[in-house]
Amino acid sequence: MNRIVKSLSLLVIPFLFAGTSYAGVDFIIDWGTNGKASEPNYNAGTHHSTAGNVLTVRGIIIGFANNGPFAALNGNGNEYTVVLGNMTSLGSIHAFPLNLTSYSGGEFWVYEDDGSGAAADFANAGSFSDGTLILHGPLSDVATNIVDLGAGCPGGTFFANWLATDGSLFGLVPGCAGDIDATWSDNGCTAVIPAGYDFHCNGHYGLGECPPTATEESSWGGVKNLFR
């Protein structure tokens, strides 16, 4: 028995550092109903995106999950905006009632404006990218779908994966990834689509996974010492 204990005590085991866990966090970044997107050369009548079109989404953030990494930003009076851009259409495919479009590439930017920049205004694209870049990274697997039953308002979803790589608040979600999900409509019967835009979207960032927290090798004795 002693021999077993001794063997165990000599075992070198990886000890997991306690890291920040956001398991169960809802939408870490939520732009609510304040999202619009543009895609020059998009045909809303046929829900068709021509390959090579470039999609850009702009949104005014309404809040951050209260139990999430950006919770401290809530209510500080600053304006937060999100831009998803450089998404290149691979073309649409259609089969009643579905209209599917996939995009390659893509990046996202989240900005904080302390009031020194212009208030976000869909008529002024630059007003979404002034201020401090707090989070940035690539997008992948960007896809949209629109269901058009021929009656009522056509609508569907926008989906993308995000990966944080830099930005002034990158340290709050270092290397984290997740998805961006939004309602998606190209018809003014769902919500107003201002001039210069082609889509309305209501969406959020979900937090999926963050890289495993750092480990260091230790012995059982070292672990036991922690509890003393």
């Binding site: 009522g152 979803t157 979900g206």
Partner: peptide, 12 residues
């Protein structure tokens, strides 16, 4: 009234 909702299989 148009009702539009997305659903995701999120961690929460």
């Amino acid at each position: 009234t148009q009702f539009s909702v997305i659903g995701t299989d999120a961690f929460g």
